[in-house]
Design a protein around this nucleic acid. Sequence first.
DNA 1: CATGGCCGATGA
DNA 2: TCATCGGC
Length: 815
Amino acid sequence: MEQENRVVVLIDMDCFYCQVEEKLNLDLRGKPIAVVQYNPWKGGGIIAVNYVARAMGVSRHMRGDEAKEKCPEIQLPSVPCLRGKADISKYRDAGIEVAKVLQKFTALLERASIDEAYLDITRPVEERLKTLNTNLVNTDMLPNAYALGYDSLAEFIQDVHNCGADSIEFDYEHAKRLLVGAVIVSEIRAAVFEETGYTCSAGIAHNKILAKLVCGMNKPNKQTILPKHSINILYRTLSLKKVKHLGGKFGDTVCETLKISKMSELQNFTEKQLQTKFDEKNGTWLYNIARGVDLEPVQARFNAKSIGCCKQLRGKSALTDLDGLKKWLRDLGDEIEDRLEKDALENNRTPRQMVVSFTTQLPDGRDSGSSRSYNFAVDDELCGELFCSKALDLVMDSMEGVKLKDGEPNRKLKSTIKFLGISVGKFEDNSESKKIKKINDYFGAGASKDMTEKKNITSDKGDSKKTLADNSKSKKLCNGKDYIFQKFFHADTKPAKNELVIPKRNDDSTEAVKNESVLASTLDKQESFFAKFLNNGLKSKEDIDKSKIKPPTTPTCEVVNCGENSNDSDYSSSTINNEINKSIALFEEDPEGVARVSSMRELLKTSNAINEDTSDQLEEAREPHNADNNSRGKSLDNIRGNSNNCLETFECPDCKKILTIDMFETHSDYHLALRLREEERQQVRNEIKERKTVVKNEIGNSKRSVEKSEATSTKKPVEKLKHDTTSSIAGFLVKIDNTVPTETCAECGKKVSVEKFSEHMDFHEAQRLSRSLNMKSTPGHFTSNSVKRKKKSPASPRKKNKMPSCKSIDSFFKS
DNA sequence: CATGGCCGATGA
DNA sequence: TCATCGGC
């Protein structure tokens, strides 16, 4: 699964905002429409145009009034306004709805924008190859699909069937995978349509940039394959500026300094030449992309790393006084509060930082942008009021306050503000702090004392003997580990020897606030549970052995939704990403694993395989480090080391990763979550299959098929699982027998048999974890009244020559 | 006055 | 940490 042989897909929703409006208002269907915002002035600015309206010459960059001239019957639904700003929340929600469908097909999904997502389906393709004979793939399985460089898809399929015998350049193994990928993408797009009613287009290639490039070649509601041997055909006429990252100033300088304009011309330069003309990094990037190579991995990211809102304050609305500034900061802060509230419910996370940014008019007339950040204190109440007041502080600070006039505390600002924005980011997972809180509660009164001790340690620069190893809470912490074991394995475990230090988030407000910043910086370094799993998991046994010499570093992970960053990482972020991909790949290699219900039970059986030797060696390895922690920084590192490296390790029976005991809970939940998702994916596949047969049956007997369609599509997902309830993880949720005593789950309201209750709670735990992994595990739902998909093979005139007519590739793109 | 409001990445 | 860029 080398980077060059991936199957990467870009899914792009067709004129998304228009589709959302059409779904919400049936009157708009089939009519020419454009979505506008701020309609008062010249009919508002157009932000989306549907294809009916495009055919009549309406485009973006037009005002509503212009569109009306071009197309008098055009409908102009308007983006609602909230607090004086355009409110795009309904489109955001729609985007999430779509992404949730996509996510059922692969966890390796990167949401690139509100309506776009990259999918790495390399693994699913390999899986499908085991059961699907590519020679049986035909155009009926690929409606609305195209292969670049071919006049018809059939010719490309024929090439694959012939193993590309006609052409020397033909990379059979790769083309075969793209073809199978295209079959999967057809299913994905069908599922999106079935479940949401939205159409989308897709590009299928071996990397992100190419997938993005070809996605736009056939729209709407179409998908395009880019076989390797067609890249040069594409590049011959492709403007360099159409390639992602080259659309801006950098692209301009590349074109100017090299005196080129087409992508293919970039191939005339050596890597060295490109590196000297630009810099090393850009040089190799250009060299690679000129040959269709882009190694950028698809990141597993569902949620945005930041949530922000801003407002352009042009002309008269520019801010000149303090009241205006306050008013807008309050509105922006309130919007952030609203969105954070929703985000916390959906994603179980909290931001650690806010940034306020603004632009002001300089004396010379030029605009100047600035931004200032604030890290939330532990006891900050994250509300609009706080955002507003902190933002005000930051703005005032960097603008040197208000200008005073005539003794009166006047409200004139030093310079007018033309743009204002607040955003929050650096998210931290709530489940982690909740778990920590739970453990703290378990420790009882000791927790608060521990906190003060820790504060002293972190702030006490010179004192090296106060390591965490020798304080009195060691015993209690051992009990805490037992507690974790008992909760998740319902079994007694032997008392542990090594201490487990739990980092604490909850502050004791009665304590002095002096050291708050020190504490905050300690928390800066705190990793999410999942990050710890990943970073520990990516160490092989050999690495652990090596760590006898050098204490293990614990790189933070920036791929989880918390968006952790790390400066002291030994691993590049792409390496970490690869590890995520691998762990997901491991899960995908085991589709039958669904049958094994309780990995927790299995883990219990094998949990005795604790490697005491390794842990002892690790303990030794850390000693010299402990002895040398004079500086505060070292002391902090030491705390991290203690909290992250619980010293007993074992091998996960599911994925063979070496784990530490504190990762037990998280790791088993992780596997459970992955299996659960796989089950969902299978459900989607079965649904699609079922629906296809239903459509076929419809031809023969329309009445009967309607009944069947109703029967299959209106069933609740849980009921659908009944037939294989014994082997299914989702069987946790199914009440098998009415006579069995049940208990109502406080979390989801479902009735669950008492016997299965603990497993049910585990399920919720897994769900929470799943959320923290950006992999939501909401059961698939098929609307019963959604329009059935009509299959239609593209009736394109079949030409003899394989090379396409030399129409400029640019002409495929909308301006 | 006139793409505005997003988001992510990067380099110093 | 902040400024700037790129793209939807």
